[in-house]
Amino acid sequence: MPKDDATGLSRVLILGGPGSGKTTLARALGSRLPMPHHELDRVAYDPPDGKPDAPFWQWARVPDGVRQERAIALAASGRWVADGLYAGWTAPLRDAADIIIWLDLPPRVTTWRVIKRAVAHRWRGGRDWDIRSVLRVARGTRSYSTRPAATVKQLRERDSANGAHTLEAFLRPATHRVARCRNARQVRQTLAELLSLALEI
């Protein structure tokens, strides 16, 4: 945990690659603190008209400017915990967050989690994951840690430009508020410390 923890804990940003456990951690924090949880995928993409429950692979990428407007509105909304893999347009959330948790787990862990999650989702009758989606995300998970740092233009054009090197540069202005977790033990420890901190406030 950063040494200069915020005096309050009302805005938490969780960032990391596919399969790093972002949403699981965000839901745990959101339910226990409590505070509203926002998946940034749902900010960055819109469902087809009239089909809010459509599989996510049918959702459309919204323009970068719209994403920034939504991020600004969310950052100013008071209490929240948000999770995603996005750098660039999420700067308002980075700047507003009391604490930023970077889930930087190894590819062997995240790739296995993606595959396991997809299989479980399909087994329960879900429609978000088809074979193409699983293969695409699994490949992206393996390359996430080695992908070159992206330019602003690349981030605006494609979400696959996001990666660990890009995220590291993006978080540099907020280093004093970043808790970087490289394994599951550190994630559990950070969760425990955050919950303990919240009880003291």
Rank of each mutant, 00 (worst) to 15 (best):
P2S: 14
D4E: 13
D4K: 15
T7H: 12
G8V: 13
L9E: 09
S10E: 13
I14H: 02
L15S: 00
L15P: 00
L15V: 15
G16Q: 01
G19D: 03
G21D: 00
G21E: 00
A26Y: 01
L29P: 02
G30H: 08
G30L: 07
G30D: 08
S31P: 01
S31G: 13
S31C: 07
S31K: 15
S31R: 15
R32F: 01
M35P: 01
P36A: 04
H37P: 04
H37W: 12
H38G: 03
H38M: 11
E39T: 05
L40Q: 04
R42P: 03
Y45S: 05
Y45D: 05
P47M: 09
P48W: 10
P52M: 10
P52K: 06
D53Q: 14
D53H: 13
A54I: 09
F56A: 08
W57Y: 15
W59R: 12
W59Y: 09
R61T: 11
V62T: 10
V62Y: 07
V62D: 10
D64M: 10
G65Y: 08
V66A: 11
E69K: 11
E69Q: 15
E69L: 13
I72K: 15
A73L: 10
L74V: 00
A76E: 13
G78C: 07
V81F: 02
A82W: 03
A82D: 08
G84F: 03
G88Q: 06
A91D: 11
L93E: 04
D95S: 13
A96F: 07
A97I: 06
A97K: 00
D98A: 09
I100G: 00
I100A: 02
W102D: 09
L105M: 05
P106E: 06
R108C: 07
R108M: 08
T111E: 10
W112V: 10
R113F: 04
V114I: 11
I115R: 10
I115M: 13
K116C: 05
K116T: 10
A118R: 00
A120L: 13
H121F: 08
H121P: 01
R124V: 09
G126E: 06
W129H: 03
W129P: 03
I131K: 06
S133D: 02
V134A: 00
L135I: 12
L135R: 10
R136W: 05
V137P: 03
V137M: 05
A138Q: 04
A138S: 04
G140K: 02
T141S: 12
Y144W: 15
Y144L: 00
S145W: 05
S145Y: 00
T146K: 07
R147F: 06
A149I: 12
A149W: 03
A149K: 11
A150M: 07
T151A: 10
T151Y: 09
Q154S: 12
D159E: 12
D159G: 14
S160K: 08
N162M: 05
H165W: 11
E168N: 10
A169T: 11
F170G: 02
F170R: 02
F170C: 12
R172T: 12
R172I: 01
A174M: 11
A174C: 13
R177P: 06
R177W: 03
V178M: 09
V178S: 02
A179T: 11
R182W: 05
R182Y: 05
N183E: 12
N183A: 07
A184C: 07
R185L: 13
R188S: 14
Q189E: 14
A192C: 06
E193D: 14
E193H: 14
L194F: 09
L194T: 01
A198H: 15
E200K: 15
E200G: 10
I201A: 12
